[in-house]
Design a protein around this nucleic acid. Structure first.
Lengths: 202, 202
DNA sequence: GGGATTAGATCCGCTTGCGTATCTTAACCG
DNA sequence: CGGTTAAGATACGCAAGCGGATCTAATCCC
């Protein structure tokens, strides 16, 4: 716990501090080298420690991988601004800004891992966040209906989740963040017309 | 050329026959092992030949890779049935059926290759098919406009290409082919409303 | 049929990562 | 303060892939 960093001695790390340093290093390696570069040697080197330290904690490569992801992949925080359009734009911008490389990592770079283990992204997600989370956009839409901003008619999962899917698609195609124009275009020119007019509109 | 397969002798292959066998083997390895399993040894073994034979033809790994892809990635054939809806469904079904694993391969499994070489998928596509091809769905839409099936109004690339993007998105998420229901849903419930009514509708 | 070509097999040294073992010494705990 | 724990360094044998070199024999061409 004592975070005393003395003048000359770089302090041999222990416990939580060490584990954090290692998983941070591992995350960085995953982000910029992919699953290929994700070796015990590389992680140890980057964290400034050595292989046995890693093997002691995570005997299997998968253990280190999931521990690393668990620390860096948090469920999205769903905004509630009182306006469906603003909610949607905010959420998409958050995804775009914070999830750029992580999305690519999980859906693209880890393809080898998923193939080798016979698991899927959803398996991993379920292992990390077992709660059956409602998709964020479903929540936005139901709130908008409650506010009377949208008609209370059934909508397919496809339409409700469309902006999310399209932004994710663009991010995957560009292997990174998407221009803000695209986000606005998706919400205003694609999603909005499909959701239908407000209930008390002429 | 002489394709004589005698009774006992498996005939030592030469020239084009040999190259085809090798690139076929390489393609299969790419499809089910990804870029990681794509080693000269594995390809040689699968093709029933040996490394020097490969090195003689493709001194760099990239040469073998591009030769393999060039042989197996053909531009889409754009249907022309006289009905926009049928055109779209046909095209999407073709993509879904024929491009399943290949799409995953090119956009996901080759991520390491693209990162390592600093190139992108588009670079590769341009190298293989340098013609500036019109996106298939733009062609479908312009034909529909000519037939009077759609109003002649400007449409964004986003809307025109939406079905393609969504099917691609779903294929990437599922890492494989998409149910036919999804294709119909995308065309009828998402794309069609966005394209607007026929010009001579009430 | 005879000679040139080259497919296919085998072996080489090199590098990288694996997973483990050993040893020291810094940091913690009672 | 003395003893236990464990961080960090180093070395190990093993395996796989690399990029060649070498050699043979099958196939082609004249």
């Amino acid at each position: 716990m004592s975070e005393q960093r003395a003048a000359s001695t770089p302090t041999r790390r222990r416990g939580a501090a060490l584990e954090t340093a290692i998983t941070d290093a591992a995350w960085q390696i995953l982000l910029d080298q992919g699953y290929n570069g994700f070796t015990y040697e590389a992680v140890a080197a980057r964290a400034g420690t050595s292989k046995p330290v890693l093997y002691r904690r995570w005997p299997q490569r998968e253990d280190l991988l999931t521990a690393t992801i668990a620390r860096h992949w948090r469920p999205l925080e769903v905004p509630d601004t009182g306006s469906l359009r603003e909610d949607a734009l905010t959420l998409l911008r958050t995804v775009n800004a914070e999830r750029g490389r992580a999305l690519i990592l999980l859906r693209v770079q880890l393809a080898d891992y998923f193939r080798d283990t016979g698991t899927s992204f959803d398996d991993l997600r379920n292992r990390l966040h077992p709660q059956d989370r409602t998709p964020p956009f479903a929540l936005l839409v139901s709130r908008a209906v409650e506010r009377g901003e949208l008609a209370d008619v059934p909508r397919s999962r496809r339409v409700v989740n469309l902006p999310f899917d399209l932004v994710r698609h663009d991010m995957l195609m560009r292997m990174g963040a998407v221009p803000d124009d695209s986000i606005v275009e998706i919400v205003d020119e694609v999603w909005s017309p499909l959701l239908g007019p407000a209930p008390h509109a002429p």
